[in-house]
Design a protein around this nucleic acid. Sequence first.
DNA 1: CAATTAACTTAGCGTTCGATAAGTTAACTG
DNA 2: CAGTTAACTTATCGAACGCTAAGTTAATTG
Lengths: 228, 228
Amino acid sequence: MAQKTSSHAGKRLPNQTRRRQIIEQAIIFFAEQGFGASTRELAERIGITQPLLFQHFSTKQALIQAIFDTLFERMASKDWGAMLHDRNKDLRSRLIDFFSQYAAALYDNSWIRIYMFSGLAGGAFNRLYIASVTEPLLREVAVEIRASLGVPHSPSDVSAAETELLWILHGGLYYTAIRRHIYGMDSPSTDLAQVVEAGVDSILHGMKGLAQRAKVPGGRKNRRVVAE
Amino acid sequence: MAQKTSSHAGKRLPNQTRRRQIIEQAIIFFAEQGFGASTRELAERIGITQPLLFQHFSTKQALIQAIFDTLFERMASKDWGAMLHDRNKDLRSRLIDFFSQYAAALYDNSWIRIYMFSGLAGGAFNRLYIASVTEPLLREVAVEIRASLGVPHSPSDVSAAETELLWILHGGLYYTAIRRHIYGMDSPSTDLAQVVEAGVDSILHGMKGLAQRAKVPGGRKNRRVVAE
DNA sequence: CAATTAACTTAGCGTTCGATAAGTTAACTG
DNA sequence: CAGTTAACTTATCGAACGCTAAGTTAATTG
């Protein structure tokens, strides 16, 4: 009764081709509906019957795992680091470029919604991604900033406070994308580039403060002062 | 097998008391499991039978709506604005206090998880909350910062770019909480207060920059009064 | 204490879910 | 072109879902 969504009708596809097609459509489908959505509706959208899904993936969870593997591979294989180390450009331009492109990729291709669904489900996917992609990238950023400030800039020199500050920028851009594309709030008057620019400038100043403060041993651990 | 979570066993409760108990437990339960979780398991956790839920809420969706109403009321009734306008403290202290407490409240009481589930489900809850709570608060923050910079500081003077910069800080803190409490990544070496402090300092600098360079031509809604 | 009310339970309905088994047919091969 | 393989469908199972109807029992009232 239901008709296929694919370009031409019920062709038989080689095993691996069909498998890849299922994964690609499942990424889009589960990103929209969440992992609780039914395999029947997914199959209908692909234009196949539901039991065929289980000939390529033993369980629904196995299909979801294949989605994670695919997305992880896709994001981890990109080379954002190169953009950061291009010394032909000044640091500020490099950072703006890096964060602009990284922020754009974060939303693209259903990544952000799958990522949020996964985090809420409690699996290890997010921790794996953060530990092996995001954290190293932010550390590279911190190293570049420290280098341009003329302070020691081996990876071990980066303080936790500096990393956290970069996490604020990263998370802020992340949340900006969520607000626009998940919550459906459009901020019409500013574009992403402008936001990234202002964010990078702010964080650059903050990093400078942290780096200088770190030189002084026993730096300021000020508690809030409610004074008078 | 499962025993009631309440203090003492199967007492009969007056209508409104039971209703409130169900809502409170449902907040915790759905925050953990998502709205796809079953009403049977919720009932078991409360220590009642499942059909009793439907004597207080006509449908599962009605219960979820009651959760939204309760959480919205709880968050919107707090008076964070007062903290911002306390001129006995300097601006920086006020901002650090404000963002510290707001960030703490964001995670507390299952708020952040319910909020994320809701956003992904596509309802109007998040847009409503942002428009009536978050946006006004950030605008108040921007007004206070502009006031301390000696530039025009009526609410209409706040540019979109300034709001977006504050959104980065807000989103960054939000995402920090997510990372710690949803993804289960603990950043042991820094506490939230220190992160807020660094973030506020960075954003204060960024806001100063934006306010000064505000008369860039080509801006859409930028009717800037600043002369220079 | 008997009668009434209201809180709560027991039993079960129709539907949808993930998953399986068996049968069908398109595509390849010699 | 017959035979084999592999891609795909039909039909269905048991479990879990939201929700309902009818009965039971604790608390209240005169």
